[in-house]
Design a protein around this nucleic acid. Structure first.
Length: 427
RNA sequence: GGAGACGUCGCCUAGUCCGGUCUAUGGCGCCUCACUGCUAAUGAGGUUUGGGUUAACAGCCCAUCGAGGGUUCAAAUCCCUCCGUCUCCGCCA
């Protein structure tokens, strides 16, 4: 959620952000009104409660008739306190609801508008050309014995697949390469749970997507994560971190599950859009001040990884309307997919500033204490994909294919794959 | 899955049986100051978190004893539900 103080002191800034996203400006006025009502309810309750406490002490000391008289008096007060407290709870809840309806404030640099209003930051690598008709990843995967879509559908349904043989090997190689890079950059490697409680989902802003994006486990109040951003954001929830320990950098591996209910008919072929895949996600806790530089670093690490895969890609500054509720700014890296003739998202880096940290109550405290006490402040959270397996495989197969359907293995992957070329096993 | 024990303001801990003087005890750690060439030791003070009010990180007030309900004039303390930890049993990669 956004900083309630900014909402109160500078509502125009929030309105401007809403405009940029194409989101409702009246949400700002609703939240402001709710804030006012909340503070009034708090004042009413607290005054009554203070009086009740004072009288309670008199009751404890009084004896006999005096006590009986006080009791009768304070009983009435107790009813009023109860009522005021209930009113306060209601006011707090509607305030929280109104506040949570407002997505994160967008960064100044974030372009206004929707999906097509992104700003191109740079294009890297040369778009591959072929002196033969390139095959798509479905065909190549079949020839290599790497991707089994038919049996995926038979066993689990559409948008499922088996990675077999070199397909499975490719996944492990990509993960090893990603984790090697993460380790060298100082990240702590993590295997994260793929099932989380509703609070974790809500804290990262994904619970709203529960109908068309997120799987819920029937009978248990658990959700399958769509990204390890969820468990990693909730990892330090309800904690106060030592400022000296920041930044905390994690590289988390987990399976990711997505319903894709809203994307019927999109990417129905192959493994571009699937219900389950594995991913290595960078997740960073740092200060708000440092978050902007860290965002740039995450992007640099993503680019370094795509460079190792020897892919052609572009980097875009995603427009406000396409950010998702948590992010203030987001860079997508999109790799060229030859048979589609366009760039497709492979990785993505978001700066969520304090938005998630406020929801999940993750704060920092300066390590040098003083007598006047140390102030706490929400941390900033950022996330960036190091590698999302299925799309990485699509890009690698299609980009590095040769006329006979064999695949030239990028140098950095050779060490982990143990060979320089992947050879078809079937025509 | 069954039985039991437990959860107190960084860590440990008193308090819970028998509700009010709990404005939550003490120790450790940490912070500030004093003393001393420096450090250590010693002494004094401070040290949960959030919110309201406010010019204020001053003062005052409210909440907070795992979380949420309930009983009561009054709950760390009594009752219920949930979460978590530990021990034993059963099952199982």
């Amino acid at each position: 959620m956004i900083d309630p103080r900014i909402l109160r002191d500078d509502p125009d800034r929030v309105r401007a952000s809403q405009r940029k996203r194409g989101a409702s400006e009246s949400a700002v006025d609703d939240a402001l009104a709710a804030d006012k009502a909340r503070r009034e309810a708090i004042a009413t309750f607290e005054n009554l409660r203070a009086e009740q406490k004072k009288m309670g002490k008199q009751v404890a000391q009084a004896k006999g008739e005096e006590k009986a008289a006080l009791l009768a008096q304070v009983k009435e007060l107790a009813a009023a306190v109860k009522e005021a407290e209930a009113a306060q709870v209601v006011a707090e809840e509607s305030w929280a609801t109104a506040l949570k309806a407002i997505p994160n404030l967008t960064a100044e640099e974030t372009p206004a508008g929707g999906e097509d209003d992104f700003v191109l930051i740079e294009t890297v690598g040369e778009i591959p050309t072929f002196d033969f008709e390139p095959r798509d990843h479905v065909e190549l995967g079949r020839m290599l014995g790497a991707i089994d879509l038919e049996r995926g559908a038979k066993v689990s349904g559409s948008r499922f697949y088996f990675l077999t043989g070199v397909g499975a090997e490719l996944e492990f190689a990509l993960i090893n390469l990603a984790m090697e890079q993460a380790r060298e950059a100082g990240f702590t490697q993590v295997i994260a749970p793929a099932l989380v409680r509703p609070e974790a989902m809500a804290g990262t802003g994904f619970l709203d997507q529960v109908d068309d994006g997120v799987y819920r486990i029937e009978g248990d109040d658990l959700y399958l994560v769509g990204t390890s951003e969820v468990p990693m954001a909730a990892y330090h929830s309800d904690e106060i971190l030592d400022a000296a320990s920041l930044p905390l950098r994690y590289a988390a591996f987990s399976s990711c599950f997505r319903k894709e209910a809203g994307s019927a008919g999109k990417d129905t072929k192959g493994i571009i859009r699937v219900h389950q895949f594995e991913k290595v996600e960078m997740f960073v806790y740092t200060t708000l001040e440092e978050s902007y530089a860290e965002h740039a670093r995450l992007l640099a690490w993503e680019k370094a990884f795509l460079d190792k895969l020897e892919l052609a890609y572009r980097v875009i500054d995603v427009a406000a309307g396409d950010l998702g509720p948590s992010a203030a700014r987001k860079f997508d890296c999109e790799a060229w997919i030859p048979t589609q003739g366009k760039y497709r998202e492979l990785t993505s880096a978001s700066n969520c500033t304090e938005f998630q940290a406020r929801r999940l109550d993750i704060r920092q405290r300066a390590s040098t204490g003083s007598t006047t006490g140390t102030a706490t402040a929400p941390v900033a959270t950022l996330n960036g994909t190091l590698t999302a397996i299925t799309r990485a495989i699509v890009a690698i197969l299609e980009t590095h294919q040769q006329a006979d359907g064999s695949i030239r293995v990028p140098k950095a992957l050779q060490k982990w794959l143990g060979r320089e070329v992947l050879t078809p096993i079937a025509g």
